[in-house]
Design a protein around this nucleic acid. Sequence first.
DNA 1: GTTTTATTCGAACAAATGTGCTAATATTAA
DNA 2: TTAATATTAGCACATTTGTTCGAATAAAAC
Lengths: 195, 195
Amino acid sequence: MVSDKQKNILNFINIFVEKNGYAPSVREICAGVGLKSTSTVQYHLEKLINSGYLQKNYKKSRALTIKSQNPKNKIPILGEIAAGSLLMAEENVIGTVNYPRSEETSELFALSVSGDSMIDEGIHEKDLVIINKSVQIKNGDIGAFLINNTEGTIKFLRKIDGKSYLVPANKNYKNILVNENVQPIGKVVSLIRDM
Amino acid sequence: MVSDKQKNILNFINIFVEKNGYAPSVREICAGVGLKSTSTVQYHLEKLINSGYLQKNYKKSRALTIKSQNPKNKIPILGEIAAGSLLMAEENVIGTVNYPRSEETSELFALSVSGDSMIDEGIHEKDLVIINKSVQIKNGDIGAFLINNTEGTIKFLRKIDGKSYLVPANKNYKNILVNENVQPIGKVVSLIRDM
DNA sequence: GTTTTATTCGAACAAATGTGCTAATATTAA
DNA sequence: TTAATATTAGCACATTTGTTCGAATAAAAC
């Protein structure tokens, strides 16, 4: 299906990207694989794209991406959870973190823990908790919640006498009854602490 | 050091790269962060580069790379620390974990925590601790140690009355005097917990 | 042999893109 | 206040870069 030259080109692109962090231009591919005409490279690129090995962005430079590359594993770190506006608004993103342990990174985001209400569960201030917003928080799980559309918090969800509570892991804090002011955001699936 | 706008730009680049697989052009950054002049973006890029957050390639398009982003981010997870044979022997590797937050991943490895001797420090059984074997463990640090060439453990290193001790974060365990039977392995630099 | 297909080249073009310069405006320091 | 610094804008320019067209060559099929 793809010729040796095409494999050669694909390989060159691969190595180039790994080395430089960005894709080569058509002319750099020329030089890299020993071709003198940009249109020859163009010709091979088209083949590679049709064969599904490459992706290109029309008229954008260095916009080649190699298909079936590793899953995108960067997930956004949210700062303050803005009132009302449900998450993910770009202005709330204060950074990104590599979290390559899951396929469906689009469902994930990270929150920096503030406060010590979960200290007894080994969740410290400044820890980064990874939250999957499409996993339902079940009884006994640790989840992220939005209270009064204002404040984001990490707590246990516990059912006590038929009612649901947000339960801290710190005796100095009280349980919070789950009512219409408490909005579940997602389950805490992982924790990262840098020291 | 870097202004909000600069963080904003860095973040935009981050997200753009994540989304598209290649870096944005100067004009795309303009549009992305709400600036009308390419030279303003140029101005901020220079700041980010001087501050070490970005790398650029002169006159090459879309040739921005975000620093401290290393593709080689898989580090080995060691199981039991085999007696004598210092680490890293392949037979001790029980898996790998992606850990992309450091440059020098070759200095790093991970240990799965066993036992609850550091529970009060929020380090639980089954947690994965990342250890940098080329960072010296200083007084007050949490480090990994090999005891009697047999048993690996995670403890505080504390100097008390001129002597060094391995100090657990759990009253049920005793301090261990550091002598020739205790061998430092490396500093615990990070912790990962999956839930 | 002839025909078809695959590959390569060269040149030219238009668009995308990084860069440089000057000036205006906003912010902060003195 | 004034002075210094930081930020933004606008414009023009030189390159880089993707693209297109036509033709030549090589390889394979017939």
